[in-house]
Design a binder for these strands. Structure first.
Lengths: 226, 226
DNA sequence: CTTCAAGCGGATCACCTGCTCCGCTTGCTT
DNA sequence: AAGCAAGCGGAGCAGGTGATCCGCTTGAAG
């Protein structure tokens, strides 16, 4: 999909593209999305000009990295669905994904914060959603997860657990397992007190976020030209 | 403590100081810590110069606001401890504090992220810690919260729940109640599967964070002068 | 009322960051 | 080997932000 749809890149250019992607993935993972583009270019051994010809915007670069991450997410979900024991599959999936997020500050910041509502990210999510629904349906049918959980809750809980293990600069995957365990216990039918609020309408939230972002951008342009 | 220890401020200056604090509290609450200082000054109806004379650094301003917030937190804890039913006191306290955090993006970002490890914030936390321990001790003695929870877990869970309701730009206090409810269910003794990881040593994490921040600052100065 | 230091605020600096431009280089084609 | 377009990279631009400086204003003490 992202691989050379029209014109085959020159050999050295393609090599550079890969270097950039590699450097960006590493930089975002341990520095978050705030790492300067110049540093990514330096790490990749190219000039800023080269980077920006390939990825005209910093956002484009982030999205490219996110595509990789979502693909990994998909694979984890498939593995979970292949597990014979629904509960074990579910738990292992949650643990793996949480660990992935903790190790990747960029992912953490982008999906839930800065790129929430971005159309390209929404598309990536839609690719994951059905698998998520299947995973939840399976554990609920087996009676090992309470019925008032909905599939939109899962990513929220994943992010919450990941963040809990990320009390700032020392992100600790181990620690997040502790809080994930508490949340998982809260998902069992035994403990369930009825939930006080219904699950979020993610679509609506995303639309709102996107509208707001667009409006903000428009406001800034207007400010500039006025 | 922060109130005029040495020299009484001139009347108009004191008035301005209060305006600044008010404006900063509002701005941080709904814009996060990234709001430009200039905008706070504008909202307060003063010039940037005035603001920086009173609060020489943006950080100083943030800390001043945090002092207020922590005091409010203390009051909520006292109220919870006054509740005759331990569990109800605990739950109401958690719900209130989570709601406070959701409504105040600045608090959310500062305590767990940007100011984690800051000595002044640590001091504020120490003022809250004993109350937190008492609150937890009470529910555990009553047998309504599992025993393998430790007091350091509480702020982490609060932050996690608050963040869960903050899927970016539309922070929704209602939504965070849903996820807090799940976590609270996970705290009941009934559901408890043994926790896989021990509670964080917050002190150690804070020391590490502070050391890292100091090192980073030193690195930048060196870069500047070299 | 006079006086004067404390206070004010905006122009300005220093710096950082995303992004662009353009003269030079380099891989592919014939 | 030669020619040329695709590619390169660094100098530099635009804009935004924290912080400062300095000439003017104003509250309050005598």
């Amino acid at each position: 999909m992202a691989t050379t749809p029209a014109k085959p890149l020159r050999a050295d250019a393609e090599r550079n593209r890969l270097h950039i992607l590699e450097a960006a993935a590493a930089a975002f993972a341990d520095g978050g999305l705030d790492v300067p583009v110049a540093e990514i270019a330096r790490r990749a051994g190219v000039g800023p000009g080269t980077l920006f010809r390939r990825f005209p915007t910093k956002d484009d670069l982030v999205i490219a990295i996110l595509e990789q991450r979502f693909q990994a997410f998909c694979e984890v979900l498939d593995a979970a669905l292949a597990q014979p024991d629904p509960w074990r599959g579910f738990v292992e999936c949650m643990e793996t994904v949480v660990a992935m997020q903790v190790r990747d500050r960029g992912m953490l910041e982008s999906v839930g914060e800065r790129f929430f509502g971005d159309p390209r990210v929404r598309e990536l999510k839609q690719q994951v959603d059905p698998k998520l629904e299947a995973l939840l349906e399976r554990v609920q049918s087996a009676g090992v997860v309470r019925d008032d959980i909905e599939h939109q809750d899962i990513p929220v809980l994943i992010q919450a657990a990941a963040r809990a293990g990320c009390v700032m600069p020392s992100c600790d995957p181990e620690l997040s397992r502790r809080y994930l365990a508490i949340m998982l216990d809260g998902l069992r039918p035994a403990a369930a007190t009825p939930l006080p609020v219904s699950a979020p309408d993610i679509d609506e939230l995303e639309r709102r976020a996107h509208r707001r972002a667009t409006a903000e951008r428009a406001r800034k342009r207007a400010h500039g030209s006025a």
